[in-house]
Every structure is written in C-alpha cells, then in structure tokens.
Design a protein around this nucleic acid. Structure first.
Length: 739
DNA sequence: AGAGCGTCGCTTTTT
DNA sequence: GCGACGCTCT
C-alpha cells in the first residue's frame, strides 16, 4: 500500500510543490532539517505551508510514518489529514501520525501502559469525572465542600500538573493551610485515579513524560519513529507539552513549530507563551521564518485587527499586510438588549444574503460565552434561517448519554470507580448511598476496588443482605458481558449489554416526551458505535470510548452544509468566513469582568478579539447590547473598551449609529418588572444633562448635547459627536459622563 | 432507599 | 434560569 503511494509521489518533482507559494512560505517548506520556527500571522497561509511542507518531506523520500504532526484541536488534526491527503493521497496520509497531543499520547500510553502501572484498558476521565473524584476524596478526608469549592481544587491540581508538579512536590512546597489541604486532596486524588486505572487529561501528558523519562527503550523507539516533528499552535502549548516535544525532538532536532503569539488564547489552561518566545533560546541554530502576508482579509479588517492588538504590551511586533482590496467598512450594531441584538444580527445577515452577497455558510456569528448562543438561536429560528452550533459538548453532557458511556467504560475497566458510582443505581437497584459509602470504605482499607467488593459484599461491616444480593447481581450483569468482550463486535456487545442494564427500558417505560428523547439518545450512541465499527474494522469498545473522551463533538459533516455557523471565538480559531459577526462587545462580557483588574487577562481577551476579527475575509460586523440577561437577571453594561480601540477609520459611519429597530415588541411592563441590579449612581448626572453640555460616551467619544427630551427613565438626549455624528441616546442606558 | 423541595453557584474559554 | 446537591420527610 505504502509502496504504491510513495511511487505515486515520486513522479512529480518536489519543486513543483512550491508553485504559488511566496518566498517566505517556500523558505519554511524547504527548511526540512534542523529546528524551524514559523511565526505565522493570521491568514498567512499557515495550514498550506504545513501541509505542503509535509508533502515536500514525503517527496524527498521521508517515510510517512516518520512524520509526527501535533495539533491542538481535533478539528485542526482533521483538516491537516485531509489537506495532506489531497496532496499526497489518502493512504499515505493515513500512515502518518497526525493528531492532538492528547489523542496521540493516549495511544502511546495504551501501548506501554504496563510500564507505568496501568493496564491498557485505562479510562480517560473528563472534567466531570475529575470533579466527582475530587468530591469523593474530599468526603473521605472530611473536607467540607462549602468551605473548599471542589472546582477550585480541581483548577489547582490541574495547574500543578500542567507545570509537571507531582503531589509529592506540591506537598513539599505547600506552606499555607489551604495549600496543605490541597496537597492532601491531590495525593488522594492521584491514588484514587491510579486505583481506578484512570487518567485525567493532564495525566495523558504527564504520564507520557514519565514513560519517556524512565524507559529508555520506549524513548529510543519514539526517537527512531518520529524523525520529523511538527507542532502547530505552539503558542498554546503548556509546559508539559513543551517538555514532551523537546524530549521527542532531542535526537534528530528536526522540529518545526508554528505559532502566533498574538493568537495565544489559552493561558487560562496553562498555555505558556514563553514556549514560543524562547524557542530561539532553546534552539540557537533555529531558522526563523515570518509569514506576514495575509491572504485572507481585506485591508480594512486587517487595519482594525492591528489597531486592537497594538494595545497589547507583550507582543512580538510584526507587520501584517495584504494585497487584498480595501473592502467594506465595519458595521457596529448598538442594541438595547440581547434579544434586539440577536434580531439585528439576524436581520443584517438576512439582508446580506438576500442581496446575494453571501451564502449562509459564508457567515459566522462569534461570541464570548456559550450562553450567548441562546438568544441568537431563538432569533434565527424565528427568522427561519438555517444555522449550526459549533459548541462542542451538549450531546455528550446529557445525563443519559453520560450514563450509557459510564456503563460501557465500566465494562472495559471495572476498576473505574467514577463510572461505577455514576450508574450503579441507575436505574434503581436498591444500592443506596450509605451502602456504597461502606463498601467504598472497605475497598480503600483493603486496597481493592469497589467493583470487587461488590462481587461479595457480605464481608463489609453493617451491610444489609438485600444490598449484598443486589450488588452481586449487578457485578454478574457486567461480568456476563465482559466474558464476551473480545468475542463479539463492539456494536453488538454494546447493544446487548446496554439493553440488559435496563436503562433504555426505564426511559421507554416512563413514556414522556423527555424520557423518549433520552431513550432516543441512547439509541444514537449505539448507532454511532455501529457506524464507527463499519468505518474502522479494528474498532474496540476501548478505542471507541477513547475517541469519544477526547473529541468534544464531531459535527463536521454538518459544517459543510449551507448554514450560518454559531460558535465561541475560541472555537473559531483556525477558521475563516467571508462574513463574521462578533456579538456582545460589552464591558464585563467581552472583555470579561475579571480582565478589568488583571492586565494579563485583559491582554488575553484582546488577543481573543484579535482572533475573532481576523476570522473575517470580507466583512465584519460588531454588536453590543446595553442590557442583557445574565444568570437569569437583567444586567446593564457599557460598550466594550475594545470598540473604542478600533481604528475609527475602519468603521462605517452608518454602522456607528445603527438605529434601534421599531420592530422590537417589548412592553413597558416588562421593563418595570425587571430586577435592576446595576447601581444608579450616575443617574443624577444623566438627569442633569442639559442642552449645550459637553458629554463623553464610552464608544462615540466626546460630543455636545443638542437636545433633551422626555424625563425619568425614558429621557433621551440628542448628542452631536465630534465627528459630526448625531445620535439619540437613552439617558438611562447610555453611560454619558460630563466633561 | 428514594422522592420532593429548597439553596446555591454558575458562564469563560477545551483536551 | 437551570442544574447539581443537600436536607427532610415518607
């Protein structure tokens, strides 16, 4: 198979691959030996360079299996595989290692699990499982969850792991009482996971490091295998990832990293920007190539992006430029509330589409938080426009889905305490919390697993006979299917097993709309397994579960369809759309409130805005609402400071004063009943606004009041701003300051 | 053991 | 405004 394809790639000279690349891009492609840092600005053809570079390596005769390409998200890995496949043929690209850090390391760890005290059927814990384990450990220690929020502990443990700090070391360094407590939880958490034959996301990296550090033969195997390394989104790697990359690159030093410090948006989860900033120090002989020509966006969009990002101090200066046209100015929609914002956005998009400027799939609406998608969805549905939410988690977060997967995980790995606890009494089997606590305690004290205790719980003190029987029945149910784990095709096995758990039956019998929905979702998983089994011949239940654990959601088949895409700005990284809308540009939302006190956070938010802006090819629309529902309550906000940072020349004059639509149906009562949390300290200022007075608007800048009408909460002022713009402003929303 | 009710925290972002 | 969790009652 491979032979045929290598010969196929032989008949075209490698140089032909360089056609259409600019000089810098070609330089990056042809620098195959030794360290290479590619600083790739947004839209500079990074993916193209990476894929061509791989094709180039192959044409030089490098065997595909010697190339390792690490990406940050599944989406990126997928795209890389496809695009390389287009260049060199699908079966060649299939024998290459292209994947996320996590998925790749999970594979490596499965191969060598026994070397680090795991079995190859270890379970991967998602963050809910992590939290459940932390809570269990806290209970065990008698730490109150009120006093110590488990989520905070989770964050601290994860941070420690990202910095490769073991619980032993954490414990040594702990000085405050709270740190010592965290250390204790960390220790027991680690032991609990190990005992459950489970790893969390961070462990996948950490254990890989441990494996490679302590087992020279494995390391040598890796070295000989991965002669060419390529790491995408290097600015988003954390210290553990950095470490693995450097271990792997040590022998051949053919390491190519690509990144853009301006697009580093994962600091919060341990990404360390030093990794890219100090690459040249790590590899003094590194070649550095800067890709600064942008092929994606109009001059206007680039100018806007640049005007924003230059407010960041920590920044490698680089100059993006483009030969593209000037393009449309940026429209700003100012709206009264989130509902109106959604409707304005939908109307604007609809308008563009009706004029045949764009198709649905040319359009993306980006936002800061997933919660914002709700209003947008409603508006899109009302307008009957097709849309697609690129969210990630929804399906796999549903209870019945998690339960089904927990059953399957238990089947593969009966030591998995978190999965067991999740479903042992779902549907009810008469095994309650008290009994479970007793059995768990017994398991911990006797260094065995909960599952094994349940096989014969009669030894547990104070246990009731009917619980002993129920527990044994449960264990037998699982064991019965475990016996055929390797004999039956996974889909068949899963089907029979899940059926026998009584879970689907329970939902079916409840016979409500909701429960039938749940039953349906269970069927969807079983169908999905069957589907995967047909795609991949060697599918095992374990490999299926791994994919599901490491893939948030593969909605890709839908991404190609003609729909408007809705997603967070984080999810938009690496994508591009002719028309991009960024919603919710308000202080406290974007940037988030916590950025206001932390300059580092502020800069990260700004980079995120930069990422959002640079997704746009032709046209950008920004919006904000003066009030919106958050946490079920109405809250007020000022327009984002990011808006005022934008180069004013890039904004459309009409867009800056987009009128509030009369179409919005909203009654006075709704307003008067709305809880108002915001302080009204500025109200006196507003009410004293007089004609002729100079005022400052957070977004429109300084202006003169030319007219005042109405009073109380409906008072309006007409303000003429310094650029000649006249705008009517509701005094109760517009944050005018006296100047 | 399990159902029912009230409280609380939550929305940043993801492998 | 929702879902997870804990407390109380049966």
């Amino acid at each position: 198979m491979t032979l045929k394809l290598v010969s196929q790639s032989d008949h075209v000279p490698a140089e032909d691959l360089l056609d259409g690349l600019n000089q810098r891009q070609a330089e990056a492609v042809t620098h195959t030996e030794g360290p290479l840092l590619i600083i790739a600005g947004a839209g500079s053809g990074k993916t193209r360079v990476l894929t061509v570079r791989i094709a180039y390596l192959l044409r030089l005769g490098v065997h595909p299996s010697h190339i390792l390409s690490l990406t940050f998200t599944n989406k990126a890995a997928q795209e890389m595989k496809e695009r390389v496949g287009e260049l060199v043929g699908g079966s060649v690209s299939r024998s290459m290692w292209v994947g996320t850090f996590h998925s790749l390391f999970a594979r490596i760890l499965r191969q060598h699990a026994d070397r680090i005290g795991y079995t190859s059927s270890f379970t991967i814990y998602d963050s809910d499982d992590q939290l459940a384990a932390i809570k269990a450990v806290m209970n065990q220690l008698g730490v109150s969850q009120q006093a110590v929020p488990p989520n905070g502990v989770k964050g601290r443990i994860s941070n420690a792991k990202n910095e490769m700090m073991s619980w032993q070391e954490y414990s040594r360094r702990a000085s405050t009482i709270s740190e010592k407590q965290t250390a204790q939880i960390y220790e027991l958490y680690e032991k609990r996971l190990k005992h459950s034959n489970a790893m969390d996301f961070d462990d996948l990296l950490l254990n890989t490091i441990i494996l490679l550090d302590n087992h020279t033969d494995v390391l040598e195997g890796m070295h000989d295998r991965f002669k060419y390394l390529c790491v995408d989104e290097y600015q988003d790697t954390n210290r553990a990832q950095y470490r693995v990359v450097n271990i792997l690159a040590k022998k051949f030093r053919n390491i190519c990293v690509v990144g853009d410090d301006a697009q580093s948006i994962y600091r919060w989860r341990g990404a360390d920007i030093r990794n890219i900033l100090e690459f040249e120090r790590d590899y003094p002989d590194a070649r550095v190539v800067r890709l600064e020509q942008n092929y994606r966006s109009t001059k206007t969009i680039l100018a806007a992006a640049d005007s924003v990002i230059k407010n960041n101090e920590k920044q490698l200066r680089k100059t993006l430029w483009t030969e593209n046209v000037e393009g449309e100015k940026i429209t700003v929609l100012s709206c009264r509330d989130d509902r109106e914002e959604a409707e304005s956005i939908v109307r604007t998009i609809k308008n563009r589409i009706e004029k045949n400027l764009y198709r649905y799939s040319d359009t993306a609406v980006l936002y800061r938080t997933n919660a914002q998608s709700q209003a947008l969805e409603d508006a899109l549905r009302r307008a009957n426009l097709p849309y697609l939410i690129v969210s990630g988690v929804s399906f796999y977060k549903r209870k019945e889905v998690k339960d089904t997967l927990a059953y399957l995980r238990l089947l593969v790995n009966p030591a998995d305490a978190e999965s067991l606890l999740r479903i042992v009494n779902e549907p009810a089997r008469g095994i309650g919390q008290t009994s479970l606590n007793r059995m768990q305690e017994y398991a911990v004290n006797n260094s065995t697993t909960l599952f094994d205790v349940m096989a014969d719980a009669s030894v547990v003190p104070q246990i009731q006979q009917r619980v002993v029987t129920a527990a044994r029945n449960f264990v037998e149910l699982v064991e019965r299917h475990r016996e055929v784990l390797n004999d039956l095709p996974p889909a068949t096995l899963a089907q029979q097993y899940i059926e026998s758990t009584g879970l689907p039956t329970m939902y079916k019998q409840q016979d409500t709309e909701e429960s039938l929905d749940k039953w349906n979702n269970i069927e969807r998983i079983l169908d999905h397994i069957l589907e995967q089994q047909e795609i991949e011949e060697n599918l095992t239940l374990a490999s299926y579960l791994e994919t599901v654990a490491l893939v948030s959601e593969q909605d890709d088949p839908q991404l190609g369809s003609n729909r408007i895409a809705l997603m967070t700005m984080h999810a938009s990284k690496g994508l591009e759309f002719p028309l991009v809308v960024i919603a919710g540009l308000e202080q406290g939302l974007f940037p988030l409130a916590k950025a206001e006190t932390d300059p580092g956070e502020q800069e990260e938010e700004r980079r995120l805005f930069y990422v959002g802006i640079t997704r746009a090819r032709e046209e950008l629309i920004l919006s904000y609402a003066e009030r919106r529902y958050r946490f079920g309550e109405l809250s007020f906000s000022r327009p984002s400071t990011f808006l005022s940072e934008l180069d004013q020349n890039t904004l459309a004059p009409s867009g800056r004063s987009v009128a509030v639509s009369a179409k919005i149906r909203r009654t006075v009562e709704t307003y008067s009943q709305m809880p108002v949390k915001e302080d009204y300290s500025q109200l006196s200022v507003k009410q004293s606004v007089k004609t002729g007075q100079r005022v400052k608007h957070p977004m429109f800048g300084v202006g003169v009041v030319v007219d005042v009408s109405g009073y109380g909460s409906s008072a309006k002022a007409t303000v003429e701003f310094s650029n000649g713009q006249k705008k009517q402003l509701m005094l109760s929303y517009a944050r005018l300051e006296q100047v």
